[in-house]
């Protein structure tokens, strides 16, 4: 299993979505993608993009303005 880190802190629309999509295209089944960001809307939209790609969000955590989304491929 490979782990991909997507750091999109301080990035705004559409960059967090785009970077997640790039990682989803690279990841193989069983890999994990960890996305760290601060853009509020992306926190809601990334799970939609993950679902559209047929993958699962494992965990969403928040700490102040920063959020972390873990995707299981």
């Amino acid at each position: 299993m490979n782990k991909f880190i997507v750091d999109v802190r301080n990035q705004v629309c559409p960059v967090p979505l785009v970077e997640v999509r790039k990682a989803l295209r690279k990841a193989k089944e069983g890999d994990e993608i960890e996305v760290i960001g601060t853009h509020e809307n992306s926190k809601k939209e990334i799970p939609m993009a993950v679902e559209a790609a047929g993958k699962k969000v494992k965990e969403i955590t928040e700490e102040g303005k920063q959020w972390k989304i873990i995707i299981k491929c």
Binding site: P14, L17, V20, A52
Partner: peptide, 11 residues
């Protein structure tokens, strides 16, 4: 370009 990238990102 934002909409185009959004569409690609949403699958």
């Amino acid at each position: 370009l934002i909409i185009g990238n959004g569409a690609l990102s949403m699958g």
